[in-house]
Every structure is written in C-alpha cells, then in structure tokens.
C-alpha cells in the first residue's frame, strides 16, 4: 500500500495539523518510504496469534470509589492560554 498526496492531506486534517503545503510531496514520499519498509511484516505468519497490546501480565488494578482529588482549579487553569471566571476560554465552537 502507498499513500497519495490527497490521502496525506486527509490524514493531516484528521490529525488537526494544518496542511503541510510546501512539504506535501516530500512528506508523501517519506511516508511511502516507511510504509514500503513496514510492508515486510506481511512475511510473518501471524495466523492465530493474539495481538499484544502491552508487555504487562498482571491484572488491571482498581481503585476504591472515593473522592481523593479535584478542588485544584488554580492548578488546572494555571497554564491555560486563556481562562476566565473559572472556565477555559477557547475559540467559538458551536455545533
């Protein structure tokens, strides 16, 4: 498989990265270089193999249902590019 410049444009949109207009051709080539190379995974017989999502084999730890956090609004908003009245302020986003 390989990608076209249109597909790279679509992926960039999906990833919310402004279209890399100047580098579109080069980027497409780079991605295709990587995709061609990973293509070799097709040689491996993976019939019946369970996908491995993590190296961890211990069970998922669970916490008790207790309020142990929150009430740190200052910390939450401290690094905000824009905040007002206890809210994050972001560009208008009505759907």
């Amino acid at each position: 498989m390989s990608v076209t410049t249109d597909e790279v444009r679509r992926i960039a949109k999906l990833a919310r990265i402004a279209e890399p207009t100047a580098r579109l051709e080069a980027l497409t080539q780079e991605l295709n270089g990587i995709l061609d190379w990973v293509e070799q995974l097709g040689e491996v017989d993976v019939e019946g193999v369970e996908p491995m999502t993590t190296p961890v084999v211990t069970p998922l730890p669970m916490r008790e249902d207790a309020i142990t956090d929150g009430n740190v609004r200052d910390k939450v908003l401290k690094n905000a590019p824009n905040a007002d009245a206890g809210f994050f302020v972001v560009p208008k986003s009505v759907e």
Partner: peptide, 26 residues
C-alpha cells in the same frame, strides 16, 4: 503523528496496526 494517524485509520487498522501487534507477540 501522521504515520500513526494513518495506520489507525479506517481500512488500514487491521493491515498495519493489528498485524504489528501480532508480530509483537511473536
């Protein structure tokens, strides 16, 4: 980020991502 977005996107997920996870187990 673009590479990762691509291999997870509809139509490519099984061919790339799931296969890679299987190879990972091997």
């Amino acid at each position: 980020v673009l590479m990762g977005t691509y291999v997870l996107s509809a139509g490519y997920y099984d061919a790339y991502y799931v296969r890679a996870l299987k190879v990972r187990r091997k």
